[in-house]
Amino acid sequence: MSVLVGEETRVVVQGITGHQGTLHTRGMLAFGTKVVAGVTPGRGGGTVEGVPVFDAVEDAVRVTGANASCIFVPAPFAKDALFEAVDAGVPLAVIITEHIPFHDMLDMLYYARAQGTRIIGPNCPGLASPGKAKVGILPNVIFRPGRVGVVSRSGTLTYEMVNSVSEAGFGQSTCIGLGGDPVNGTTFVDALELFQKDAGTDAIVLVGEIGGVAEEEAAEFIEAKVTKPVVGYIAGRSAPPGKRMGHAGAIITRGRGTAESKVQALTKAGVRMARFPYEIPDRVREAVATLGGR
């Protein structure tokens, strides 16, 4: 088992003819993902890496039965691309594009939610269920199939973590890169809920960063709802404090958002915290040991 993507996932790549779109279509295919269609307006009829290209998502879905979109479209056009995917009835949209204005993302998030599409990202590496499917740009070589769920706000740091967990002998059910933008389609809490329900996930690794209060909210959720063991790491304990933004930012966070507050909240929720990236495999080993023989 896995969450969000699996054997049944059929991917349409929006922006497939661009450099990144083509490069990562190759990567997804090499992972074993069923990439069934690509979309670039005005370029329909051709193929990229053997994948048929359509002018519109609607056509791609009708002809190929695509049920997940991977969006590489540049930021100024990403909102339109997402609306197109939602209107074509695609239930999962993974937005790799970075630098999308959050005002656009607000429209995208609430429209998608109202129409029943889940967004992962934006500005994220995507997600992968080893041995089954990958939607995004995570490097293929770091994964091995298994029963640890990984969720993270970072990109490269996630690869590092997944790699070290794999090298320590622990495979992953699904690895989700949420992206670090101010407005995200999917949050830690959403991912934790999915992993908690997933019969194929025994333990969860959560990789956070300073800023925002998503990790604190994750901690509250873990305390209330998650019975599976969770391992955590927060990057940026020693980062220089950022400039504060007017008065409003300070009112909202009220002292939350620091590495200290996140580590404290997660520790209180029973999460096994790693102080450094290389401590993660040991924490996972301890977490798995508590499961006893499963």
Partner: peptide, 16 residues
């Protein structure tokens, strides 16, 4: 380094 998360983690380890 590459990526904000890895850059921050590198900083954490260096200071440590």
């Amino acid at each position: 380094a590459n990526g904000a998360g890895l850059t921050m983690a590198t900083l954490d380890v260096l200071l440590q």
